[in-house]
């Protein structure tokens, strides 16, 4: 999995590319842990080809951390395969999900 980052309106836009499963989730966690807790995030999922519950767990963990650090974490551009996992687990109730990265960073 590749991770790239840019900034829009004080939001760190973290774009993920590839597979987010048990073997790549620690990489994402470490990456986010390297940021200050109060840094607000938009995670761009457009190029995530595959996500399983370990990947979902990592995202949920980040969301919890951001919530306690009173920062905001949003998800953007979720594709159908990723959406399916959020739908079954009802994890969509924990996130603000946008279909556009800049809209997520503006709101």
């Amino acid at each position: 999995m590749n991770i790239s980052e840019k900034t829009i309106n004080n939001y760190a836009i973290v774009s993920l590319q590839g597979i987010l499963n048990a073997s790549s989730a620690p990489k994402l966690k470490t990456y986010i842990a390297g940021m200050p807790d109060e840094q607000s995030l938009v995670i761009d999922l457009e190029n995530v080809e595959f996500l399983d519950s370990s990947g979902l767990g990592a995202l949920v963990g980040i969301a919890r951390k951001k919530k306690t650090g009173s920062a905001v974490m949003k998800l953007a551009r979720m594709n159908e395969r990723v959406k399916k996992v959020f739908e079954i687990t009802q994890a969509y109730t924990l996130f603000d999900i946008y279909d556009d990265v800049s809209a997520a960073a503006e709101a």
């Binding site: 996130f95 603000d96 946008y98 279909d99 556009d100 809209a103 503006e106």
Partner: peptide, 23 residues
Amino acid sequence: SYGSMRPGDDISTVIDKNRRFCL
């Protein structure tokens, strides 16, 4: 297509969340 929202979202937030669709 299908989208999700949070219970507290108002219409303008929902439009923001679906900006690309509404573009």
